[in-house]
Each structure stands twice: as C-alpha cells, then as structure tokens.
Amino acid sequence: MRDNQSTSFGQLARRHGFLIVLVAIFAVFTLATDHFATFGNFIAMLHAMAPVVVMSCGMALVVLAGKLDISIGSVAFLSSTFAVLLMNNHGVPPVVAFAVTLAAGAALGALNGFIVVGLGINPLIATLGTMIALRGVALQLTNAVLIPLPESVRSLGNLSIGPIFVDILVAAVVVIAADQLHRRTVFGRQLNAIGNGEEVAAKIGIPVGRRVFVAFVLSGLFASIGGIMSLIQVGSISAYLGRGMEFTAVAVVVVGGISLFGGRGTILPGVVLGALTFEMIANGLNQMSANPYAYRLVTGAIIFVAMYVDAMKSGRIRSRRKKLAVRDEPGRSTGTIAETTSRP
C-alpha cells in the first residue's frame, strides 16, 4: 500500500509545493529590489522574525495536539507588561522582572490549560476568551499608553555576537529545543498521538488531559519569551505588542506544514520556513515601497493556499482509506454466526 516511487510533477508539487512557493517569493523580490538578497538583509529578516518563531513554537505544540491557542498575543502582552511596570515603577532589576514575565507566561498558559482540560471548554472559545480578557487587563495596567523601556534594557534589542543578533540565537535555541521535545521525547510523541485522535490516544492509555495541559503551559511560556523579545526590539510596550500575533502564529504553523487537524507536521523546518515566508513578503514589499495593504492581501492568499493544501492532504488520505475499505469488501468472511438472541 506504500506510495510508489513515481514522481510526476503533480506529486512533486504536492510534496514540496511549499518550498517551491518560498523559492518563488525569494526570486521575485531578488529581481524586484536591489538589496533583498543580501547577507545583511537576511540577518535583518531573521532578527525581525525571531519573536514570531518563538511564539509559533508554542502554538505548534498545541496545534500538534489538535488544539488551538489564540491567546498567545495577549499572554505576551500581559506578561511583558508586568516586567515593564516592575522595572519602571519599582526599580526591579531586569533579570528579575523578566523572570516574572516567564512565570506569568507559564501561569497564564496554565490558566488556558485549566479552562480547556479542567472545564472541558473548546480551545478556540477558551483562548478567545482569555485573548480578550488578558489584553484588557494589560491595557488597564498600562492605561493603554506607550511606555518606553529603561535605556539599559532597550539597548539589549540590538545586542549581537559578530553579525548575528542575540535574538536570532535565542530563537534558534528555542526552535531546536521545541523540535527535539516534539520529535524525541515521550511527551512529544504522546502529544502527536493525541493530535492523531484524542479518543484513540486515551484508549491506548495516554494521559490526554495532563499532556494537553502541559502543552498550553508551554505555549504560554513561549509566548512570554516571544513577548520579551518583541518588547526589547521595539524598545517600548504599547497596545500593539502581540496584537494579531496569535493569527500570525497560526498562519506560520499552517504554512509550515503542521496540520490544524493535529498530529501531522514538524516544528523544524516547518515553523522557520513558515515564519520566513511571511517575513520575506513583509520585507520585500516594504523594500518595494508597495501599498501597505498589499501585504495583507498576499499573506491572506498564502494562508488560504496553505489551509487548502492541508485540507486536501487530509482529505486525500481519507478518500484513499475509503477506497481501500471498499476494495477489501468482496473478500469479506463467509458464513457468519447468527446474532440472534432471545433476550428476556
């Protein structure tokens, strides 16, 4: 029943369609602008996409388990808000303040996990609720006002080792760790199994609830790391921090080939390629001085295509299964025993 080795163009496109798109985008911008395909610009893109990559890792773990966490932008905003307020108003040292941010991120993730697992509420609805509520709390705390970071912290945003920004290294470490967690640990394999089918996973004996809970905690934690990175890059906290990030992360994950149906896809290279796709479009259009709304149009189109491919992949597998079942039927066993009963 295995795929044979024939590689028609259609198959090639289906299997590597995403890479083809990536190369095409790269080619277009390289031709259309002077400075797109330069080392410096490549580093700049990696720098800009670092927070997205980190947050998408958390999203990816949740999505692999067949769930969704659309609160990560708000978690990033609120948990960073704590750090900013502690540093600015209470003179707390940055290291301690950011530790609080990470703890807050994990705690808010645990809140999501509790609502989803403990209260049994649909993840989309649960995290939609926390997305709105947590952003509200953060806006209240900051008076919705842009607050600049202390100078000493702000300068960290451009910290680099050689030509490589530290953000990029952090993102690399996080993405590799998340990928190893998913691919190589029992926890990761179990998450993947849950994404394959929660009922089946439960029957096999996987503690579904506990694993999903942990996935949400990690998602919150990664969101707060991404929040810190974004905060330091911009140098100030504002109502824009993390806004729309949840949808960007979902888009990154889906374009990176991780199925929203769960249990399918890998963090490496998926998340990095997904994030790179969107960053290239933003960066390239920016350099072309294109209409800013063009970005949304192009991005929307790419997300649509990615979703369609995802659905098609799953659909294709399903239809093949069906065919199998039908073909097997003629050979069905002969002579059945009566299911007749005499019940009292």
Partner: peptide, 21 residues
Amino acid sequence: SVPTEWNPDLFRSGTVNALRA
C-alpha cells in the same frame, strides 16, 4: 515613504527595511 499604521513594530521594521533598501 513607509506607512506604519501607527504600529510601533512597523516603525521599527519599516526603518530597518528602508535603510536596507
């Protein structure tokens, strides 16, 4: 001319990209 939609993030990335170009 880089439109920012008043988003600080775009102030940053807009400046970076414009300087690159």
